[in-house]
Structure formats: C-alpha cells, structure tokens
C-alpha cells in the first residue's frame, strides 16, 4: 500500500512538475485597419493567455468591450454594430505552438508557428500564424505575433456606406509577458 501510495504520489507530483503553466491577465492585443478614408486602431490591455510549457498548448481569451479606440464613437460602433458584444462578449484562441521546447528558449526571440482555432463574433476559423517567443532576463516567457485576419471569415459585415472607412483585412498584434501560475 505504501509503495503504491509513493508511486502515485511521484506520478502525480511529476505530472504537476511536467505540465507547468505560465499565464497572464494583462496581455496586450491591438488591431489595425487601414482603409482609404481612415485608419482605425484599438487596444486591449486586459487579455488573458496561458501556455502549457510542457506540450506547447496555448490559449487566449479577451472581452471585446475591453478594446479602447482612439474615437469613442468607433468603440460604440465596434461593439454595437460589428462584433455585437452583447451577443458575443468574448473572443478566444485555442491551439498549440509547434515544436515548442521551453529549454531551448533564450533571451533572443525564436520564431515559432502557432496553429489553432480563433473564435470571434461567434465564428470559428482555423488559423496558422508566426510568432516570436523568448525568455527575458527575469526568466519570464514573452511572446509576440503579428498576423492578418479577414472580417468576412468571421461574418462581420461592413455596410457599403463605410466601405472606405473599414478594411476587410485587419492586422492583429499580440504582445504577452507570462508569469508562472
């Protein structure tokens, strides 16, 4: 009995040690739309994200209403008319970092490929993007990524009257600093 207990304890303990996670609740996601008449930029500084450093699993979640715009009216339109935050309050991503090995991270950014499911406006799409990951001087993992998404993939409609104000192709920038859980 004792041996079994010790064995179970070791397995359990090692599984904790093995599946270490790092996370943040103050990650930054910005997006940028470039159209003929105007550029639109929005910032969300309250993005939650976690990485399972054992296997490279990665997740993000954010409240759409936490995006701040340069113009208050844009923020209202974004929430009310485009992403419909009342119906779909959150966006999230669930996926994994391919060939992730925490031991090989250095203070210089290493390029990784991330693949998974991005859900915005209640619509999900498989995406594969590039990102950079490093381990900073304090020993925390930092990740950045810049990629493009199409609003039409997420059924976000742009009325013809503002076709020149909002681009269908939106640049997303992600910047995270993770801390151990």
């Amino acid at each position: 009995m004792k041996r079994i207990a010790i064995l179970a304890f070791l397995i359990g303990f090692s599984s904790i040690a093995m599946s270490q996670k790092v996370m943040t609740r103050s990650g930054k996601v910005t997006f940028h739309s470039e159209a003929t008449l105007e550029n639109i930029e929005a910032v969300n500084n309250q993005v939650s994200s976690a990485i399972n450093v054992t296997n490279g699993d990665l997740a993000f979640t954010m409240l759409m209403k936490a995006f701040t715009f340069e113009k208050a009216l844009m923020q209202e339109h974004f929430n009310e008319k485009y992403v419909e935050s009342d119906k779909f309050p959150k966006s999230n991503f669930k996926g994994s970092i391919i060939d992730f090995d925490v031991a090989k991270l250095t203070t210089k950014p290493t390029e990784f490929t991330v693949t998974g499911t991005l859900t915005i406006h209640g619509e999900s799409k498989e995406i594969t993007v590039k990102g950079f990951i490093l381990k900073n001087a304090a020993g925390d993992i930092e990740a950045t990524s810049t990629f493009l998404i199409n609003l039409s993939d997420f059924k976000i409609e742009i009325p013809s009257t503002v076709k020149n104000n909002i681009s269908n192709s939106i640049e997303i920038r992600v910047k995270m600093t993770y801390e151990p859980v």
Partner: peptide, 23 residues
Amino acid sequence: CLAIIIISTLNAAWAQDDLLDLL
C-alpha cells in the same frame, strides 16, 4: 496513503485541464 493517492490523482487530472478553462 489513500489521501496521497487521491490528491496525486486529482493533481494529475487537474494538470490535463483545458487551458481556456484556466483562463
């Protein structure tokens, strides 16, 4: 011993939890 087994198994199960659930 039993307590250790249960705690350890729970830990192991928790470790497999979905990352999104954690968030």
